[in-house]
Structures are given as structure tokens and as C-alpha cells.
Nucleic acid binder design. Sequence first.
DNA 1: TATCCGACATACA
DNA 2: TGTATGTCGGATA
Length: 909
Amino acid sequence: MNAVEIEEAVSDLSQEPFDAAEFPFSFLAAFGNKEATIKRLRSGNTNKSDVGGVLQRNNIHIAVAEPGQTVETLARLKASPQTERQKAKFILATDGAQLEAEELGSGEVLSCRYGDLGNNFGFFLPLAGISTVAEVKNNPIDIKATSRLNRLYVQLLKDNADWGSPDKRGDLNRFMARMIFCFFAEDTGIFQGDDLFTSTVQTMTEADGSNTRDVLLRLFDAMNTRAPDGAARPGFPSWADRFPYVNGGLFADDIGCPTFSRTSRAYLLRAGELDWKTINPDIFGSMIQAVADEDERGELGMHYTSVPNIQKVLDPLFLDDLREQLEQAGTNKRMLFNLRQRLSRIRVFDPACGSGNFLVIAYIRMREIEDEIMRRRGEALTRSAISLTQFFGIEIKSFAAEIARLSLLIAEFQCDVRFIGQAEARALVLPLHATGNIRQGNALRIDWEEVCPPATVSAEERDLGGPTGRLNLEGGSEEREIYICGNPPYQGSVNQSQAQKADMESIFKKYLKTYKDLDYVSSWFVRAAEYLKGRSGVAAFVSTNSICQGEQVAMLWPILFKLGLEIDFAHTSFLWKNNASNNAGVTCIVVGIGNLTRQKLLFEGSEVRAALGITPYLTIGERVIVRKQTSPLSPIAKMQSGNKPTDNGNFILDGEDKRSLVRSFPETERLFRRFVGSRELTQGGDRYCLWIKDNDLAVASANPEIGNRISNVRAFRLESRGKQANENAETPHRFVFSPHTGGSCIAVSNVSSERREYLPANYFSGDTVVSNLASVAYDAPLWNFSIIVSKLHLAWIATICGKLKTDYRYSNTLGWNTFPVPKLTATDKARLTRCAADILLAREAHFPATIAELYDPEMMPTDLRAAHDCNDETLERIYIGRRFRNDTERLEKLFEMYTKMTTKKERAN
DNA sequence: TATCCGACATACA
DNA sequence: TGTATGTCGGATA
């Protein structure tokens, strides 16, 4: 359950008549406990209460109090030994009128009327495991507003089936934006009189909803009609005439109005009851997208960018430069004036703007800088020089686009209140100003220049530019400063929709033959590069880290470099996080691409490094791009993918199942091989696979269990949408890819934790089948093992290969075949073989410890570490005659060798 | 054929 | 339910 669903459930509970016996269970149900859990509590099996209440282990101790005895009952809960023994996080006592609760960890207490429980649901959110909710807890209004609008929206669609059609949806979305504006306006004094809108609807409409539509249409009309100076507008009844002229585009179009039922009218009024003035246009806007989108409803704000992550984009993009210019200006009035002029001319463009939170944050930060300018000039601000028309966006979803326009207006009003004053803000706000230029459409298909036309600046304007700090406009642009930013959608090639693939084709076909493995997000980088071509500027996006790793680097980055761009700044990988309870599972980076001559900044966690250049692997250094290749660059062993079953689990048995099968059918013994994937290689474990040679097929099929497994594989492969699976459906006893030779091999895990200092690799005899979760070198001399487990090789893999989150991912084509190795003499090989054997021996000495245990960086046995040290020393001496000082030096050498070896090869061709 | 990756997947404590 | 660490097989070349 997400926070909105919990809010709805808790609010409902507190509105129902109080049922003393049922309350504890209904309360737990509201926080998402499963029916089975509650059943067990009810039966007493898991109820640990010692005071006649309900105590759920690790969660909450609830007791219903005698009327008027809530405080006393809470004290009893607190004193109860079971409360502590069962590690309750909360205690709660209520008599149906008053409610007392305490969070035991923090000592925070809640005391409220029972009916007000819905407004305090945030207090209990940790019960649902939602603990990253500091902002939500402090500002529950955003969640409550979302939840109530959600109900209204769904009900309106039920009452007005025709409004659900694609061409009418936009009108419904515009209608919702109007409602939100009215709720906001009546709580902030934009409308004269508290709750003017809600109370007008309340009093003027029938309870059955029949004339709600007529009343609303009348109000819309009024808000779109300018009043003759101070006089009443002719033709409007006085209740409608009390509404001001609002317009600003919001009420201009005739979108009609949906019809209301008793229920939808009630939801409208309930939404109006909230106090909307503290709405956060960034948080709320992102959450509310879920309202109009069934797909998103379950994931509630999963993809909205948190403010810290937005700042990772906006600060280095242009805000830090503005702040620096402010510092340099000190109290110099002329310089401060110039900076304010500059602020009034900057354009911010988010081509994937969603509900507009990047634009909103950019606007607020710019207003803060303007406020500081005014303070230093000793002047009072009467009207901001920054206009919403400086903000541009493209958004594919109509409702989000609508919300983006509205969020900017709300942000403007809130900034006016904060920096000018309450009364002045009210006086300024109506009629609504033009809001941001938000275009609804597919950013990969429409012309960006049309949405955000680059305008030239006058010579005078250019003089005002910031020749300070990192930004140098001198001799550069004749155009306005435009900053492109945002968090476009990510989608790997496997999961792209047909429409997204078509979008990709429209962008990449002219640059590349093979582009289909690129992530969808890379389209935005190319579009931005095309937009910036021939003018100066910077574009920065939050992105999945995969565009700066592995195979995608060689596809995407040459295009961007050719368009004249460099990496202007970047944040290395960080885990995606926002306030949503179910975060998207992705590791992100921020990359700014631009063509300004300013120093480059690389942010790694809390550290920043300035540099002359940043590579597409997000390291500092000279630009080298490593391309995958099918055979090794150096004279080293051939390495391949492991054996791929595509069996839906049918070929694989754990040790116990395999043994019991073989006990019953001894003739099946030879059909099995030990099976090793990433997990077995590192963490050990006992798994076997069916490895059926064609001439054993009769034996295999004759066995009921194995025959059954084979036919399951056939069915699975037939149903699969993968070509390889289909093609191998008629040989269902075989793996779909099987390089296994029956000889011995060296295997490296394809994924491994970044905590380890050495790659997990091992040596296997011919009776073990290595799965496609590892890469294998069959019949390879042991000195290859020495290279694989070296620090030198790991440094290369860590930089060049792809990653799974930030963990190492091994690839033969990208990491092994490209690895530069100097010519090895027979003596070199003998020494390395010796080192490899010593490592294997050192491991053996700790039998049966697994590789994961042995290579835990904190527990690594000294003899094993010594063997590795010796191995690294021996190998590194072959490279440079001594040990490398660090990984930076290792990579420098490797890149130098790689460049030399690949250019030589090119010349030879 | 043969890989590379996943707005991931899932087992733990 | 946050933390730790690697499954599995589709889409692509």
C-alpha cells in the first residue's frame, strides 16, 4: 500500500461510527496488513497483548479505553512489559472520541480527536514500512490532496464515460487544473473571502449533484469575464460575480464541464475542505500525475525527481554560476543590477518536464537570488524581473502538462508572498500572468526550436552576461542563455515499446547502423546536442548510468562529440531515491553536455574535482572509447559466454533432488553435470543440470520425471517471444547455447559486488557445466587465470564494462578481448602460472570456505592476500618493471597501450 | 551464433 | 522492508 491508499483508508475509518471491538483490526487493515495476519491476531495466536488490547510484534500495541480514560490507558500500554518485549514501535489508546499515541523510538506523541485521525495518518506511516517520509510527514497536505483529487477524478470518469475518450481527456485534465486552482485560490486569499469556492458550490448546488455542472459553468464564465471598472458584471448573479476575473489562459477555453453525481459532488467538497495554501508545487505536482494515469497509480510518484537530485542538475548547470556572480558583485549596485538583468533573460527548458518540478525549482532558486540582490541593493521588491515565460517544457502526458503550467503559477504566487508580501502578492496575482510555455507532445518528435525558440541577445545584453567564475559568455554566444535540463524516461532496448523503438529510429538512423541497444534516454542527449549545435549552451539530464558504461558508450558518445559537445560536468552513479515508498530500481548519473569553454567538474558523492576533460566513462582523463571485439586484441586465451539453458528452471535440480532421483533411477546419473552460475561460483552451493547428449535422449525421455521436464522446456520455448527459444523448441533436451567442451575451464562471474578487490574466478574440471551467468575460457593455460584475478584487470573491467547498479559486470567482448597485455615470454608465463597455482592453493587451505567468504575485504585470509599480492607484483613488473602506485596509474598505462594497439591495427587494415 | 543488459529481482535479517 | 548481491532470458547483431 502506498501513502495515498493509507490516507484514504485511515480517513474512511475515522469517519465511520466507532466500533470498540473492531477498531484495532480495522486500524491495522488500514495500514496494509493482510487479512491472514489480522485473522491470526484476532484468533489470539499472534496477539501478544497483556492489557486486553491488540499487540502486533515489532509494530503496535493498541488498546480501546473506557470513555474519557485515553491518557490512563496509554500509560498502561507504556508500562506494559509486553510492549517492550515485543518491540512495539507505537502505542495507541482511544475511546472513540479522543486518541492518544506515542512513537516509542522517538518519543513523539500524538493527541487528537478520534475523527481527526485521518489528518494525522502521517504519524503512523512507519507502520507500513514507509520511513523515508520526513517531508510527507511534515506536509501531509500533498498526499491528502492527491488522494482526494484521485477519488474525484475516478468518480467523474464513472459519471461521464464519454470524457474518458482520448480526445476528451485533455478537457477533463484542464477541468481538474481549474479545480485545483480554485481550491488554492480560496485558501490563499486570491479569492476574497475564505472558502469562497467550496462554500459557493456547497450552498448553490443540490446535494444530488444535478445542477453542480451548471453552477461550475457559471463560475468559469465569471472567471473568464473582465469586470467593468469596479462595477458588477452584467448578466451574472451576485454569487458568481463575487469571483474575480482570473483567466491567464486557465479559464479561456470552453472545455465544458462534466456532470456530477451525488458522490462526485461530495468528493469535490471534500477536496475543497483541505487547506491548500501550503501545497508544495514540486512534490504535489509529481504525486498528482498519478491521478490521471492508471499505470502510475500503483507506483505513486515513483519517477519524480527529488529536490536534491534536481539540484544536482541545476546547480552546476547555471545556478552556481549565478551565485558566484552574486558573490563577486558584493554590494556593487551596478553589478547587482546587471545580474538581475541577466536573471530576467535566462531561459530554462525541460524537454521531459512532467509536472514541471525542474522548472519550479529553477524558478524558486532564481527568485531567491533576485531577493538577495534586492536586499544588497537596499531596495524593496515590488515586482519580480523573472517571468514564468522564461520557462519552457515539453511533456507527453496532457494532465502532467496541465499541472506543470499550474505548478508554475502556484510557485510564482508563493514566491511573491515570500519575497514581496501577502497583500502585494494577492494584488499582483490576478488576472493570472502568462505561465510557462509547456507544450504537450512527444519530445522526440516535435521541433525543440519551435517550443523554445532561441532568441538573439542585444550587444547590451551580452555585456551583462556573467564573465565570472566558470561561465564565459565573452566571444561566445550571440544568443540568450538557454539551459536545458530534466529527467527523461529510461528504457533498455529489451523493454522498449514499439512506439519508443520508432522514436529511436527517427533519431539514430541517420547516425548509426546499430543503435538498437541504446537506452531510450540517449535520444534526449542527441536531441539536445542537435539543438545546441551551432550555438553555445549546456544541457544536463538525470539518466540511467548505463549510457556511460559498456557497449552503449561506443554507440552514443561519438555522435555527441561529433556534434561539437563535451561533457561539461557529471555526477557519478548514485542510487535513485525519492519520497515514494516504492522507489524505482535504478542507478543514476547526471551528465551535462555543452560547448562552453569552462572548466569541467566531476562530482563523486560529496567530492568535486575540476578537470580539463571528463571521459564518457565519467572518469577524468583523455577521451578514449573502447569498442567491443569478438577476439582478443592481445595473445591471450579465447573466452566465451557460458552455457545458456532457457529452460524455465526445468534443467536445474538442487543437490538433494538430484540425488534422490539418481537413487531411484541409477541409469540417470550420467545425464547430470554439476552446474555453476554466478551464485555457485562465488557463494558455493550444490546445483546440477541435465546435460543430455543426443544419444542419451532415449534414456532421458524414458524417465517419467526427466521426460516431463523435457516436455516442459519444449512448451516454454514454444511460447516464448524470443527467437532463440522458439528455434530450439524442437531440441528441448539441449541448452540453447552450449560451448561446453568437456574439457577444464577458467570461469569468471558475470556480476560481482563492487566491494571485492578481486574478480571471482575459479578453475573447473570438465564435469562441471558453467552457466551463462559466467564467462568461460575452455582449455585455457593457467596463466590466463593470473591475469583475470589481477588488480590490473579489475581496474580495466571496472572502467570499461557495464555495471549492474554499481557492481562489476564482466564481459568477454568488452573487457577481456580489449585488455592490453604485453608480449609474454615463456618465463613470464611460467611465473604467472606459478602465481595462479599459489592462489588456488591458498584458497584450498581454507576449504570449504566459499569465494564470497574468502574475498570479503574485511575477512580476507593473509596467505590468500599474500598470494594475490605476489600475483599482482609479478604481472605489473611485466608491464612496467615495478608495481603501479594506484589504479589511476594502472588505467593510464592500459589506455595508452590500448590506443597504441588499436591504432596500429587500424593502420594495418 | 553469441552476448549485454534490466526506472531490476529477490533473498535475507 | 532496507540492505546486499546476483537470476534469467529477450532483443539484437
